[in-house]
């Protein structure tokens, strides 16, 4: 009897074997291509200023030194920066996710009365905005300039993310569930809370990650709205450190000092990257847990 090509635990057909081989090779190459510059960045951050700016670092640290890190951590503002960023990230993300869900769910219901209207209202803001001046004036009038609220209330809903969530609700939650729930007498809000949200862990994970990372990396809003140093997020502080390291020739006439300073900024750039990235890197594995394969609790069929 001809052996049917099946992919099962006993043996792989040739087609499958080739495919897996190709995939593994490609992934291997990808890892090398992506990892090399990352290793380079870390190595640079642990090298001396002169080695980095002279471009002597190829793969491993040259003239191992902690200068970059030392300079950064000596600066006390860095710690306030960390605290502020964590605060903004956690609070703002929570706010974002709640608001986004509240907008995405109704829009995912095809029969929702206001679907077309609301969607249009949201889409328009993707393209047209008043610009920074009227936004600033508005916030001045609301007396939230130079307060934490200015950061929390800017960009609280990303239409992009909302659409992602809406699409997910539409495509991944079967319509039958809604019918069944209706029969059981559950209201819309109840349905959202008890059925949709638990089933959407994957998209919540993704959207939370998107918002969190955006907040972690942001500096523009803080630059615009904050004047009080104690409210500065990490990125703003790090940028200031980097700017300060850029040598202004007209200040100094002594060549010795010039030389001391000119190497520092290059290595600091890399240390700053490592410092501001490491916390975020820890986030992904946590988020990844929610991407489990096919989860459909309980059967609704029949």
């Amino acid at each position: 009897m001809k052996r049917k090509k099946r992919a099962n635990a006993i043996g792989l057909c040739t087609e499958d074997r080739i495919m897996y081989a190709v995939v593994y090779v490609l992934m291997g190459l990808l890892i090398v291509v992506i990892a090399y510059p990352l290793v380079y960045v870390v190595s640079c951050s642990f090298s001396s200023g002169n080695a980095v700016s002279a471009g002597r670092v190829l793969l491993w640290p040259v003239e191992f030194s902690l200068t970059g890190y030392r300079i950064v951590f000596n600066y006390k503002q860095v710690w306030t920066g960390y605290y502020n960023t964590i605060f903004y990230t956690v609070t703002a993300t929570a706010l974002n996710v709640v608001l986004t869900t509240m907008a995405a769910y109704p829009l995912s219901r095809k029969n929702f009365q206001g679907r077309k209207l609301c969607m249009t209202l949201f889409m328009v803001t993707m393209f047209f905005s008043g610009g920074i001046i009227p936004s600033y004036i508005l916030k001045t009038q609301l007396h939230i300039v130079n307060t934490r609220w200015a950061i929390l209330l800017t960009g609280s809903i990303s239409v992009y993310n909302m659409v992602v969530m809406r699409t997910f609700f539409q495509n991944s939650i079967p319509g039958d569930l809604l019918e069944a729930a209706r029969l059981d007498g559950i209201s819309d809000i109840g349905y959202l809370l008890r059925i949709v949200i638990p089933l959407s862990k994957a998209v919540f994970a993704v959207i939370t990650l998107y918002y969190a990372v955006a907040h972690w990396n942001s500096y523009f809003n803080a630059m615009m709205y904050l004047r009080d140093r104690n409210l500065y997020p990490l990125q703003l502080v790090l940028r200031d450190i980097l700017n300060a390291a850029n040598v202004d020739l007209s200040q100094i006439s002594d060549p010795e000092i010039l030389r001391q300073l000119s190497g520092a900024s290059d290595v600091m750039r890399y240390s700053l990257i490592v410092i501001s990235t490491v916390p975020m890197m820890a986030a992904y594995p946590i988020v990844q847990k929610y991407f489990k394969q096919g989860v459909m609790i309980g059967s609704v069929k029949g």
Binding site: M102, G114, T125, G130, P134, S135, D188
Partner: peptide, 28 residues
């Protein structure tokens, strides 16, 4: 759909105040 409208209310309010409010500035 009233419950859906209720859900929509805070996001819409945010949108109107913070996105549509400043829109007059586009006339710059």
């Amino acid at each position: 759909d009233w419950q859906l409208w209720l859900l929509m209310l805070p996001p819409l309010a945010y949108l109107l105040i913070f996105d549509y409010g400043p829109m007059y500035g586009a006339q710059i």
